[in-house]
Design a protein around this nucleic acid. Structure first.
Lengths: 287, 287
DNA sequence: GTCAGTCCAATGGACAGACCATTGATGCAT
DNA sequence: ATGCATCAATGGTCTGTCCATTGGACTGAC
């Protein structure tokens, strides 16, 4: 096992200088109390696991840790770094949540470097949305705008196989019973936008589009929005415009649709808020 | 303290049914080549801390946990959920990394619900970039395109105070000695783009722009790129265009600049790769 | 009464040691 | 060879302990 990618490199003990502290005493560096200094440093005592994460990320950015590599075992890592296993576990947990490493049990198990997880962007934006930092209005607007970029690139870079996949996707929509579950329609739509994002041939845009689409479609699913009767016609036109590389028409078609959806969602949000207020009032009077 | 927001969890023993939920399995890479069986078990035994995270997120999405609320203390939570404190800690660590909760020490400390953390999007994309899932070419292209959107909105929505801030920012750039540290120039540039992103009045675009800008500027800083002699003139023109709401000129000015930067960075990446190859060859011959 | 200082309990941060379940390799018996 | 039992490595979890920090309660001097 080519163990050259250990966190601190060099096998025995961590004779390296950089992180040569933190071993005997936990007090770290109580630098405070310097009254005479005009410039107060933001002391910010770093937690142990954060430092471990940084080391991993450093080696990652430097290229010495690459996808597929395996980190030392938890116990070994803890010994090398001179920290407890719990601290190592919290660091690994953090990296795992970040999609940087994957943990596997059993013999020959361990922490393996992954390639990152696009879903994390989605999750982060979704959290901000649910916690009220991002408004539905901003979200749908951004999606409309970004999809304009996507149409631009897609028209330039679309390939026949992707066109075929798009057409097949629209066909699937037609075979769906109009009274079918919303979740199925939403899944097909998600696939549709995913195909378009892939056509842009730009992974960054793909990630962004997937995030915004996922969140918006989740709202669509929850808002009991009615099935757009002309959705299929819209999709067919869109695919046609892309296939024939009519950029302006494609942009316009997409924008009109997304703006219509945006208005629908905003209306649904308003009525939902009203219902909530109603319920709150009813609850109040009942007390 | 109105402790109504407890994590649910009927008192002891987590005899809860083993999950049931969990969408079509996520990471789930450990699945091996099941050739014969079309669909079988994506079961993936859930870990304790994951269930705790889900409970918190559920209450969050349902609105019963809102920013500012405080979760029970670690020990209390552990007792209520019938798990060890270590498991609770890992769950809180996970949520903290996700920017959902913040931990505070001391009396009256605890885990507080936050509003989400925009930096997480940056971190996720940065990880994917460093791990090779995103190319520098894609990154710079996406940034160029997204900034076009930003110029559009900024020209429509810019306010006098922001114009003033932008002008002040450019002034700061002029007062910087040309031989100054790259990190300072980069910091000022980051502020410049941050101001523009704020002018769009769309938090989603703000988050995206901040992420892409941070990552690209970090590359600029590391690539020892020379100071663009006409950078200041470019910035002044840009601010002027925005202030006078000349959308097309603003877009063009921004795009030209970013494309120039893009070519610079791509060149730097190539030479860096060559150097790396050279070093590798030298190392090889030395053995 | 007010203010300063002290003390204390609550809380997160970290550590140590242990046990269990899973997993893949190893070796033995067939 | 093949199949099965065993074993060691590893992550997952638990229990228990100690420390540093923090804010409030308490105390005492003025």
């Amino acid at each position: 096992m080519t163990r050259k990618t250990t966190i601190v490199a060099t096998t025995p003990a961590r004779a390296r200088k950089p992180a040569a502290r933190r071993l005997p005493a936990k007090t770290a560096e109580p630098v405070a109390k310097e009254k005479s200094q005009p410039r107060f440093a933001p002391i910010r005592t770093k937690r142990v696991f954060e430092e471990i994460c940084e080391q991993v990320r450093r080696e990652m950015a430097a290229g010495s840790l690459r996808p597929g590599d395996k980190l030392p075992a938890e116990r070994e890592l803890a010994a090398k770094l001179g920290v407890s296993r719990a601290a190592v576990r919290e660091a690994l947990r953090s990296l795992e949540i970040a999609g940087v490493v994957g943990l596997q049990k059993g013999a020959r198990g361990g922490a393996f470097i992954l390639k990152g997880d696009p879903d994390l962007v989605t999750q982060s934006i979704r959290d901000m949305f649910h916690l009220g930092r991002i408004s539905l209005d901003n979200l749908t607007e951004a999606r409309t705008l970004v999809m304009q970029l996507a149409m631009q690139l897609a028209c330039e870079r679309i390939r026949p196989t992707t066109v075929a996949a798009l057409e097949k996707n629209v066909d699937r929509l037609t075979t769906l019973p109009p009274s079918g579950k919303a979740s199925e329609r939403v899944a097909i739509s998600a696939e549709f936008y995913r195909l378009i994002s892939q056509a842009t041939d730009n992974t960054v845009l793909q990630v962004i589009i997937e995030a915004l689409t996922d969140i918006v479609l989740q709202q669509v699913e929850q808002s009991n929005i009615e099935f757009f009767p002309n959705l299929i016609a819209h999709r067919r036109r869109l695919v046609e415009y892309i296939a024939t590389r009519q950029v302006d028409e494609a942009k316009r078609e997409m924008t009109e649709h997304l703006q219509r959806l945006r208005r629908h969602l905003m209306r649904a949000e308003r009525t939902a808020a009203e219902n909530k207020t109603m319920r709150a009032l009813a609850e109040e009077t009942s007390q």
